[in-house]
Design a protein around this nucleic acid. Structure first.
Length: 469
RNA sequence: GGCCCCUUCGUCUAGCGGUCAGGACACCGGCCUCUCACGCCGGUAACAGGGGUUCGAGUCCCCUAGGGGUCACCA
């Protein structure tokens, strides 16, 4: 099973892989996998000022975490200069490209004048017909754009999008410093890599006719285009650092599971009936560009949180224990204070109470702290002389238990409740505060049996002492 | 501003000429209950507006409005 379909995801390493880029990468990846084609990663690092190795590494780390493996690449544009040069020579000899000695200032002046005259601001083609160029004057290379006619982009999602050539500029394909520009490299790379489907953000649609012109000038067939909708922030503005264009790695650090992020991101714009939760396999099986929504989607953190919890609820226990362990260590706590089995019990209690892994670790802290911190409000409400008799009685009864199981702990509670003729709530809350420091925790029997006999007794005594203060 | 794209509950979406316009998140009730959750049951809530086409329009066409994108020797 293998097809000729080839797609690429082409981020620039001028920043982290943010969720918008990740979503585009995912659509490419799933499209390739669905068709048993090839998914290619290409780093667009021709911006020498802003591209960094740190970002390059961070992007690779993000894909590693997401579990996306690429069939080819990462290719680096910075290492492909020979390929661009070859195409430049072709265009130069065919006359499709020409030398331009106009300075940026001159070009800006042209644009401003055109704008003032109410026309499309563009380069006026001054250097198109000049062949008497002084080789000592610095120059850039421009691509000759037809003055009339139209360039049509046949988009899988948007249909045929028509651009008037008169709207298009003679774009620079090689800068004065000799480096090729983005819109040029993209086309050359996509040709060279035999890309069959260019799936990318809607923000590139307006750039596409420029690239199509490069294909035409080189007499190469154009690939299929699919310009997908973008993700907007809660204010309907383009996602930016201000509102949630966070890097993928930040979601990892905040305790999200990669499967949940992937599921959420893919469902933003793509759907399969009423289904909300998908395994990677299910997405691969069902993914198609036709089911992509054409309108922009607003990023909803609440739903991501819900999905994340769904994944935590059904996550493998050992995986959660592992996550717990690393989280505890990061916070300077020792997981080994409790056995692996006990920790597994803890995560099983916490999984229905945690929207993120970070929540889970916060909820587990008190099990591992030698001195718990008391929530003042809770302490003053429940740790008072009125309750000390109850706590003492419970402590004495717990001390008698040999097998500290949930069932046995429960029996002790019921014994005390009967003797004192009180409801469980009356007893559970003070005890909860005594052993956890607060009013929120898993069930009290489970919590106590998981905490263990010695530590429970110790904490009850500590609480008793606190009451006496 | 020119050009391009988009428009179903607050949000993500189903719908592909005839539906009581469905699901999910969030929200609001209720049940469960030792706290917090989970779970279960129920509820509020949408076809941007206006013209056509059609026996019939959320679905097709046009206009308006709104939102977004793009106009570099950045990517």
């Amino acid at each position: 099973m293998h097809s000729d379909i080839r797609v690429r995801f082409a981020p620039s390493n001028t920043g982290h892989l943010h969720i918008g880029g990740a979503r585009t990468a995912l659509f490419n990846w799933f499209f390739a996998k669905h068709h048993a084609g090839a998914a290619i990663l290409r780093i667009e690092d021709t911006d020498r000022q802003r591209s960094t190795e740190e970002y390059y590494d961070a992007i690779m780390e993000a894909f590693d975490w997401l579990g996306l493996e690429w069939d080819e690449g990462p290719y680096r544009q910075s290492q492909r200069m020979d390929i661009y040069k070859e195409s430049v020579n072709k265009l130069l000899s065919s006359g499709a490209a020409y030398r331009c000695t106009c300075t940026p200032d001159q070009v800006n002046a042209m644009r401003e004048k055109a704008r003032a005259d109410g026309k499309t601001p563009k380069y006026d083609g001054t250097c198109r017909g000049r062949y008497d160029k002084d080789p000592n004057v610095p120059f850039c290379l421009r691509l000759r754009t037809p003055d009339a006619g139209e360039t049509i982009v046949d988009d899988i999602l948007a249909g045929e999008v028509v651009f008037e050539n008169s709207q298009l500029d003679d774009m620079v394909i090689v800068r004065t410093d000799g480096t090729p520009t983005y819109n040029f490299c993209v086309a050359i790379d996509d040709i060279d890599m035999k890309i069959t489907h260019v799936i990318r953000g809607n923000d590139h649609l307006s750039n596409t006719p420029k690239q199509v012109l490069v294909y035409k000038a080189l007499e190469e067939p154009t690939p299929n285009f699919a310009h997908i909708s973008m993700i907007l922030g809660p204010d309907k503005k383009r996602l930016s650092k201000r509102h949630g264009a966070d890097s993928v790695l930040e979601y990892r650090d905040r305790g999200f599971l990669p499967e949940a992020l992937i599921n959420y991101l893919v469902r933003l714009g793509w759907s399969h009936g009423d289904q909300e939760i998908f395994t990677k396999k299910e997405i691969v099986e069902n993914f198609s560009l036709e089911n992509l929504n054409r309108s922009a989607a607003i990023f909803n953190p609440e739903k991501l949180l819900w999905l994340n919890q769904e994944y935590i609820k059904s996550a493998d226990g050992d995986f959660l224990v592992e996550s717990l362990d690393t989280g505890l260590k990061e916070r300077g706590l020792l997981p080994d204070l409790l056995t692996h089995g006990t920790r597994k019990g803890i995560v099983n209690e916490l999984r229905t109470r945690s929207r993120t892994i970070s929540d889970m670790i916060d909820g587990a802290r008190f099990f591992f702290e030698n001195e718990i911190e008391f929530d003042e409000k809770a302490a003053s409400k429940f740790l008072n002389p009125e309750n000390s008799g109850l706590i003492m009685k419970l402590r004495d009864e717990l001390t008698k238990i040999e097998t500290f199981s949930t069932e046995n702990v429960k029996s002790v509670f019921h014994l005390v409740m009967e003797e004192e003729t009180i409801k469980l709530g009356k007893l559970a809350q003070p005890v909860r505060v005594a052993i956890t420091g607060g009013t929120i925790s898993p069930g009290i029997f489970e919590t106590i049996s998981l905490l263990g006999k010695d530590r429970t007794i110790l904490r009850l005594n500590t609480a008793l002492a606190k009451i006496d203060e």
